[in-house]
Write a protein that binds this DNA or RNA. Structure first.
Lengths: 186, 186
DNA sequence: ATTTCGGTGTGAGGTAGGTCACAGCCTACA
DNA sequence: TGTAGGCTGTGACCTACCTCACACCGAAAT
């Protein structure tokens, strides 16, 4: 029997006994979503942090003129939510929806803090994960500050080759901060 | 006697006994820097993560054409380093220098991990801190994706009013990703 | 006292990328 | 099997912002 994807993911940072993993998994709520379905919707409460078992999602902000900017994509073994709203227990200011049918594991803030308090390994995992995420966002900021549309697209293609085929170009443009048309002209 | 600024800072997230704080402080190396002095220099090893007791710094990237983009400012009670290089123990890819004379506390990666392993409160503190930092960077990315020069400057002024007087406009421009001249025209 | 230099304002002109509009092509679904 | 809607390409125009150039000012340095 192949190990659970969440277990593989956690154990890349913190080793776990069978009992510990079962205990952890029990704090996640499995949820399935259809294509185009909202996982988090602007203005609504955020039910948890979502670990992606299968599928593809986008977290995006909608401006008053209707233009959408994509903050993050998420595929297998990524985590996604509106972190600002999640940590502070406020209504969401961004929306997250499914680009493909999704199987997710939802971890409520209460359960996250409970697990972190009870199991050192879990708090260690989330610290390391957050550190890595911070670094990745810094790099994206530098990319936005220093490079033009073509260079950003190249960087994206080099960093996420698997997403190139999986995502419509329109969405990649909304992630890179470029218009659909400009991206189309390479 | 007024409590140590680092202690105040840590205790906003994790309460500490006198003994614990003394033990923690013993893992930091106090260092003083002059105006314009490098704290971290591109290509060199990163000695640690720096807690700012006093002063003002900038972390910036220099492009091949010499143009500087500022990733982060740091003043009293902020942390700053090249996190990518620090966590991965690689040579720095950004530089950090002092805008004012600085008193810093340097925490090596070894001591950070040691403290995190020995004291729950410390690991908890760094997890929370990293989470908050992640959210702040997400907001900056959204700002870069969705707003123009004037709006970004307004947001910056609203968020960091004390930095407006403390920093030359040229640097604020390099932080916002706008030319000095455009910022000058408001 | 004079010079240098960092910081700032402002004008003129250039350009990367935005906006708008239309057309072609799929897939899905009735 | 027709039609509607998502995705992409492309042309024509427009504009926010960049670049270059010069001028002014105050603080520091000699």
């Amino acid at each position: 029997m192949t190990p659970h994807p969440l277990r593989v993911h956690l154990e890349q940072i913190a080793p776990l006994t069978d009992g510990e993993f079962d205990y952890i998994l029990g704090h996640f709520m499995p949820r399935a979503f259809r294509r185009h379905q909202f996982v988090v919707q602007e203005g609504m409460a955020v039910p948890g942090d979502f670990f992606v078992v299968k599928g593809c999602l986008r977290a995006y902000h909608t401006a008053s003129d209707g233009k959408e900017s994509i903050l993050q994509f998420a595929t297998e073994n990524w985590w996604v939510t509106d972190y600002d709203a999640y940590y502070r227990e406020r209504p969401a200011t961004i929306s997250i929806d499914c680009i493909e049918p999704c199987e997710l594991l939802c971890l409520s803030l209460l359960n996250r803090e409970k697990l972190c308090a009870e199991l050192r390994g879990v708090e260690h995992f989330f610290r390391k994960k957050s550190n890595a995420g911070y670094v990745a966002l810094q790099q994206r900021i530098l990319s936005l500050l220093t490079t033009n549309a073509a260079e950003r697209y190249e960087q994206f293609a080099a960093q996420y080759p698997h997403l190139l085929q999986r995502l419509p170009k329109t969405m990649i443009a909304a992630y890179l901060g470029v218009s659909r048309e400009t991206l189309s002209r390479l």
